[in-house]
Amino acid sequence: MTEGCAVVSVLGMLEEREAAARVRVEGLREEVARLAGVLEAVEIELDRRVIAREELVEALAASAVGAAAVTERPRPGPGRKQRSRSHPCRARWCRSGGTGCG
Score class of each variant (00 low, 15 high):
G79R: 11
G66C: 01
R73Y: 03
V42I: 08
G100E: 11
S9R: 14
L56M: 12
C94F: 00
V50T: 02
V8Y: 09
L35R: 13
A36E: 06
R95D: 10
T71C: 14
L56K: 10
E55W: 03
G12M: 09
G12L: 14
R73K: 12
A68Q: 03
G37K: 02
Q82R: 15
G37R: 06
G27K: 05
G12N: 13
A61W: 03
E72T: 15
T99V: 08
A33V: 02
A33Q: 14
G79A: 12
E16F: 10
A21M: 13
R85D: 12
I51L: 12
A52P: 03
T71D: 10
V23A: 10
C101N: 03
Q82L: 13
V10A: 09
R75T: 05
C89K: 01
E45I: 04
R29M: 12
M13I: 04
W93Y: 04
V38T: 10
A21E: 11
A19S: 11
L35P: 03
V25N: 06
E16R: 15
G4K: 09
L46T: 14
V10R: 06
A21P: 00
A41Q: 09
E26R: 05
S96E: 10
T99M: 09
P88S: 15
S9H: 08
A68K: 01
V38P: 00
Q82E: 15
V23E: 12
A67K: 07
L11H: 09
E3M: 04
M1N: 12
S9M: 07
A64F: 02
G27R: 08
M1A: 13
R22I: 09
A41V: 01
P88H: 10
A62E: 15
E54H: 15
T99N: 11
L28A: 01
A20S: 11
C5Y: 15
R49E: 10
S84Q: 06
E58M: 12
A41Y: 00
E3L: 13
A21S: 12
A20W: 05
G27Q: 07
E30S: 11
L56G: 02
P74H: 11
A64I: 00
E72S: 15
P78K: 15
R53H: 13
R34S: 08
C5S: 07
R75W: 02
V32M: 00
S96K: 12
G79C: 05
P88M: 07
P88N: 06
G27I: 05
E16G: 13
E18R: 09
L56Y: 07
K81V: 14
E16N: 14
A62N: 13
A41E: 12
S9V: 09
I51A: 14
S63N: 11
A91M: 14
S84F: 01
W93T: 14
K81L: 13
R24A: 10
E54K: 12
A21C: 10
W93N: 07
G66I: 00
E31P: 01
M13L: 09
V70P: 01
E3K: 08
E72P: 02
R48D: 13
E3G: 07
G102R: 06
E30V: 07
P74T: 14
E55P: 02
E40H: 03
L28E: 05
E58L: 10
R29S: 06
E45P: 05
E30Y: 05
A67G: 06
A59H: 01
E55M: 09
R17K: 12
V7S: 00
V32F: 00
R92I: 08
